[in-house]
Amino acid sequence: MNIPDGLQYTKDHEWVKIEGNTATIGITDFAQSELGDIVYVDINTVGQEINHGDVFGTVEAVKTVSDLYMPIAGKVLELNSVLEGNPEKVNEDPYGAGWMVKVEVKGSPSDLLSAAQYKELIGK
């Protein structure tokens, strides 16, 4: 299970990388492995301001549907257009080519977890 040290995490299994005023968000290796083959990433919130903890999209695996929650308040700037045709990138490279959205950060992070804390949460 790959849980990189340089990222922050949520208890809902998103990762977030904050660089300056921009945050890149995706789902963790643990999340993609639990979901199985991801066949559709449904995000219609580009341009919207979304509160911390609110749903910004949905990820669909063959068997299950899972909501995506904002790790930090912000405005969705762009989504990863590669996922439109290649949602399996989320399985193959969840922290790289499988990123989901970039967000303009509007609030300060409150309850993000470190890699060590996230590993403890998932029992790895």
Binding site: G36, D37, V39, A61, V62, K63, N91
Partner: peptide, 8 residues
């Protein structure tokens, strides 16, 4: 067993 590697 729900899956071993990948559903697809």
């Amino acid at each position: 067993p729900v899956r071993y590697s990948s559903d697809i």
